[in-house]
Write a protein that binds this DNA or RNA. Structure first.
Lengths: 196, 196
DNA sequence: ATGGTATCTGAACGCGCGTTCATTTCAACC
DNA sequence: GGTTGAAATGAACGCGCGTTCAGATACCAT
């Protein structure tokens, strides 16, 4: 046997990435075999190598894509000037963007250690750009006397950790709606840094 | 060859657990081999099985021990009554306890997926007890009119995520001292839930 | 109808995995 | 100083790993 009926590169490629995302998130990069990914797609392991040079590149591609999507989505937000409004906007955006991508978020934070140095550096640079966006908001708010932040870098990481944590527990159809979760987190973030 | 000079069960056991902790945290459970752990201890792989029935039990033991240590340390805190004081105490304790155990913390949060169901349930139960301790504080503070918390469970998880995040960046000898970090996080936690 | 090519199969490769166990060594005790 | 048992060795087991590649197949343009 060989080529399957209805097989197309434009279909198999994304399906491989989707399967890898799911499996890496659930079992971890090291614990997932190429044969497992292939089985999920309905293909033999060898076929994966038409779409990725190797397993490592598959992981790196998923992580880089995730970070670029995040940055692109953030860049398309309307520009605001008031620091408190900007922080509210950032927090709400962060929750909205992350709450529906738990697998990608989990991988992006947990599989960094499995990246080769070059890939690690690329992902870290993208993450850093995102953190810098939040830190700018905090710095401006502090300079404007609105925020009380002894250390903007620490506050940045603390807020991002708090907000990203939503992916650990939120499940579709739970007690709280997406909008409620978004509002509660945004309020907590604002209160955490607001001058009292 | 066989037994090495100066080898003792009371020494090798802890060394195996220490090596496993380090390696699991750095590379992930699935990516670490028993031979790697043994090499770190200076022993052959077979010798590990005098101290653990298998690799899975080694992981479970590390995680359960970590959670029990955490609960025991928390239980030994002096009892306070004012909710704000209790939250301050909890936040400072959490930072202090976690900041020096980044490896164990990382494993306890990231390797849950590699636990067999029975071990997973055991670790989850312990974690739940710890979360409940914080949620009680938030509930009491809300009932006393001190805290504005729309959902105590959400706030609990948000605060724990924020505080635990310290292990992702804090490094000995950095810009901020342990005490400074502790104070800043405690203030942010309190502000995040305090009624305004 | 047919040729060309993109797509996939299936077997194979060397390797390291977790685990077991007979054997060997060393320390402690009498 | 001989005996005993705890502690560790090192070889072996079957297995699945990531990756390669020659061959087979189905789609597309002509």
């Amino acid at each position: 046997m060989a080529r399957k009926t209805g097989s197309h590169s434009e279909i198999t490629g994304p399906r491989i990435r989707a399967a890898a995302l799911r499996l890496f998130a659930r079992q971890g990069y090291a614990a997932v075999s190429m044969r497992q990914i292939a089985a999920e797609v309905g293909v033999q392991a060898g076929a994966l190598y038409l779409y990725t040079p190797d397993k490592q590149s598959l992981l790196a591609d998923l992580m880089v894509t995730h970070m670029k999507d995040l940055l692109a989505a953030h860049a398309s937000l309307p520009a605001l000037s008031d620091p408190a409004a900007r922080l509210d906007q950032f927090a709400r955006f962060h929750i909205r963007h992350h709450i529906d991508r738990p697998d990608a978020v989990f991988i992006a934070y947990m599989e960094l250690r499995n990246l080769e140095p070059a890939n690690f550096a690329a992902v870290e640079a993208l993450r850093r750009r995102y953190e810098d966006a939040l830190e700018s908001i905090l710095r401006d708010g502090r300079d404007a006397g609105q925020f009380a932040v002894p250390d903007t870098k620490l506050a940045t990481l603390a807020l991002i950790a708090m907000l990203t944590g939503v992916t650990n527990w939120y499940r579709e159809g739970g007690r709280l709606s997406r909008a409620e979760v978004e509002s509660i987190y945004a309020d907590m973030a604002l209160n955490a840094v607001r001058r009292v």
